[in-house]
Amino acid sequence: MHKIRIIPCLDVNNGRVVKGINFLDLVDAGDPITQAEYYSKNGADEICFLDISASIEGRPTIIDVVEKTAENVFIPLTVGGGIKSIENINNLLKAGADKVSINTAGILNHKLIIDSANKFGSQCIVCAVDAKKIKDSWKVFSHGGTINTGLEAIEWMQKLQSYGAGEILLTSMDKDGTKDGFDLDLLNLATKSLEIPVIASGGAGSSPHFKEAILKGGVNAVLAASVFHFNELSIKEVKNYLKEEGIKVRF
């Protein structure tokens, strides 16, 4: 049986983890490799790095981080944040990333999705979508959620699918950081409208939230950050709960 994926996301700034596990006495909690190894050993099905380096000087450090992680961690690694070109993607994949996550650059330039899916294969192109409910529908926001693009989220995701995206990482801006559960209506509408897998993001606060995202939202992967980093929940705890609820997970 196919298993549900649980994916912890780590924010990396200038090569250092700035949002990651902070409940353990890790030798170096800022070290992305240490953090990725910890999660890999503790039930993560994949790892996601989000590069939040604002400066141009900070950018190349992620390549080094990915290279060292890939030498030590043998589960899939997705890297996102600031990806703008085929060259960026090529460098990350060469360094050992399995997938890249593209957001704003794909909105500004659709061809980047088409070209990268053609060149590297859909399996490594994850399209990240930040959606916020305005009146009765969800709009897509770009530039880290600061600009309303006016695009309808569902239509945009269908377009991304037709451009060759392999997966959609869908973040509800309304729910992100609230810890009161995922936006189930958004997830449900997205999974019903798409043929490619959807990864739910934004709102995880308890194990039942994961269950709802899977059963009511229809997703087969869930991404979460703070709830794991602060040990409010462990991945194993979530998986044990899901297993009891009859959902297939990997141990």
């Binding site: 049986m1 196919h2 298993k3 549900i4 099905d45 399996q123 490619i196 897998p197 087969n220």
Partner: peptide, 14 residues
């Protein structure tokens, strides 16, 4: 087969 489950088949399986 299309339609029944998501494609690509991504993730851990037995």
């Amino acid at each position: 087969p299309e339609k029944k489950l998501k494609l690509p088949h991504i993730g851990w399986n037995e």
